[in-house]
Amino acid sequence: MAETTLNDDAGAENAEATAARPTNVLIVGVGGQGVIMVSKVMATLAQRAGFEVKQSEVHGMAKRGGGVFSHVRFGHKVFSPTIPRGEVDVLLALEWAEGLRWLNHLNRSRGTFIADVKRIVPPFACRNRADGAPLGYSRETPKDVLSRVRTGYALNASGMAERLGNPRVANTILLGVLSTALDFPEEEWLAVIEQFVPPKTVEVNLRAFGEGRDWVARHGEVGPDEEVDFSPPAGLETPPRRPRVFIERAWCKSCDICVKMCPERCLELDEAHIARMRAPERCTGCRLCEYLCPDFAIRVLRLPQDASEEEASA
């Protein structure tokens, strides 16, 4: 059973320092996942238990799908609302890469890492727009990460939530996992969750919370990979198609639009001021030059990789 009370492994610290140190919970995720809701539950719960609570968050990124985090600190006396790096007791990640991004905030000797393996690929991970280009997303599997933290749980909470019938309760499942890492009675958790979720979803949220606790009970301290689907992110496996740009020299009127509009800066005007490919290897086949050529001189073809070279050299 994973009833890990946070301060039991204080090691060299004496009892007095342990009691004085606040408990630090860092909740991270992507806008819209429910990071703020989780931190509100956490903060209210601690307040009800008579602790002093300080919470600070970054929000408003939901529209853009950007990273969101929330610091919750509670104890007998809390001075700063933000958690120093390396002092996080529980890191709760609603998205896999966000969890890895904040991993260095986790305390090595006493920290608990809880992460959903759901992957939300941020736009800047897709900067290479070529077909079949690798995504700039973390390749670390839960096994790699869990071996590096003291206590770690990686679970497919989003998949579990979908099976419960509401993909939005993934954060409540993670709350259930979190509840096993902290010393609060289960009824308190349930009461606070009931207070914060929309009235129509109370029932499914309470079931989700139980689901999270059960998951820990079933799997012990380190979650095995059996429920974790960690195939490479979509996009890696698409067969690469090689873009080729054909320019009809007789039709080009040197208007320069293709040269200036190409996002990859592949084109240039030659000595005769006719468009030509300068860097064919950079072309991603976006077809912007073809669309914007007023003279129909450019044709972009996305041919399968095995197209004959003589066609390609035309």
């Binding site: 039709w251 009127k253 208007c255 077809r287 007023p294 129909f296 996305r302 041919l303």
Partner: peptide
């Protein structure tokens, strides 16, 4: 060669190209 995308040459009177319009 064709790759299945729209080819404007199917719709043009190729003997009249390039067209008379100014650059740009």
């Amino acid at each position: 060669p064709r790759d299945g995308s729209f080819d404007i040459r199917d719709w043009l009177r190729l003997e009249l190209m390039p067209h008379f319009m100014c650059p740009g």
